[in-house]
Amino acid sequence: MKIANRIRWLRFAHGEMTQGELAARIGMTRQTVAAIEQGKYSPTLEAAFRIADALGEPLDAVFQWQGEGGRPPL
């Protein structure tokens, strides 16, 4: 998976938001949020923006490209 994310850390930084709460905010299932968080499913661009919006962060603070020349996860 070439897209890393900081969703788990950001959830806890935002009042220990659960996966279910985040899922309800962005109109997804808890299982999909868990899959995204663990890098087992890459969300669409729209879903990525929704997640970033729900966490109150810019997109690149939530998701990072890990391809050639990409930076390691924060």
């Binding site: 997804m28 299932t29 299982q31 999909t32 499913y41 969300p43 879903a47």
Partner: peptide, 11 residues
């Protein structure tokens, strides 16, 4: 609650 969850892009 699981049954009422919306169908999302992964589904």
């Amino acid at each position: 609650s699981e049954a009422r969850a919306p169908v999302d892009e992964r589904d």
